[in-house]
Design a protein around this nucleic acid. Structure first.
Lengths: 148, 148
DNA sequence: AATATAATTATAACAATTTTAATTTAATAA
DNA sequence: TTATTAAATTAAAATTGTTATAATTATATT
């Protein structure tokens, strides 16, 4: 499954005329197989044993390249560092206010909102972003324990 | 109108035991009367003639105070600096991809999404955030001119 | 007026990200 | 293959937004 995703992604890059360097392959692979929403630094740290002299700049550079082709989305999350999400299919994010965990969830779509916004503002709409915030099951348990 | 808003806000602060210093008053007033979504630095720059020796830290400090009382929301916008929004009533933001302009718009509410997310993820939901991205009327015109 | 508390200032520190310039690598054409 | 060109990577410095610290000043309370 993930193998196919990786191939897809690489083909899409090739089609856009982007060279597939070992570093790019590794960053992309990490984004896909890890199934997480890593920060640039997390990616860097988990690949530095494989590429001992890769620089952080490379990670940032390539994440930007991936963003331009639409393979990856940047999630800007409050004060701290951005997280990067491989876009396999449309989904939204549920974020835990107390531990920061990000969980994907699907929702039929907010096309209605887009068209209303278009009418009201006169903008030409490209897309939207939504996140739901709350407390994850684990943190809920912990909070209860603390109170009792 | 805005006068009333300012008074409301100040009363709310007083009730929470927050002192109304000249700097706080000015920052709050700027947020309300300017009707924009300024960055901390924009606020700082537009007040430094009035308070020649105010520091940026004061702006950040007080924005944080306002955030805690719920008077102000922080909008973390991509790479660059946060913008701050005085919360008069529930609304969403429409953001221009080419010039960065932010326009408010109202939408009945996304409670549905929240309750679905709650069921699917098991999180206890606090709230959500949504932004719609697109091109503002002005930038649409400019783009057309460039093409012709 | 004296004391305690909180807010402001100025500066330094910090972390995340970007820029720069030099070097290396890969792709293309002769 | 070799030479040429373009693109990607590296390392380091620079920038940016924000926060922490300590000293000073203002405000409120007794």
């Amino acid at each position: 499954m993930t193998e196919a995703h990786i191939q897809d992604a690489i083909n899409r890059l090739k089609d856009t005329g982007v060279r597939i360097t070992p570093q790019r392959h590794a960053i992309l692979e990490y984004l896909i197989v890890s199934m997480t929403h890593p920060t640039a630094d997390e990616i860097y740290k988990s690949l530095e044993h494989k590429f001992p002299n890769m620089s952080v700049a490379t990670v940032y550079n390539n994440l930007r390249v991936f963003k331009k082709t639409g393979l990856v989305k940047e999630l800007t999350y409050g004060d701290s560092s951005s997280r990067f999400d491989f876009v396999s299919s449309e989904h939204y994010h549920m974020i835990c206010n107390s531990c920061g965990k990000i969980v994907d969830f699907h929702y039929p779509g907010l096309d209605e909102v887009e068209s209303l916004a278009e009418q009201v503002t006169g903008f030409q709409v490209d897309g939207h972003r939504m996140e739901v915030y709350g407390t994850c099951p684990e943190c809920q348990k912990q909070n209860k324990q603390l109170k009792s």
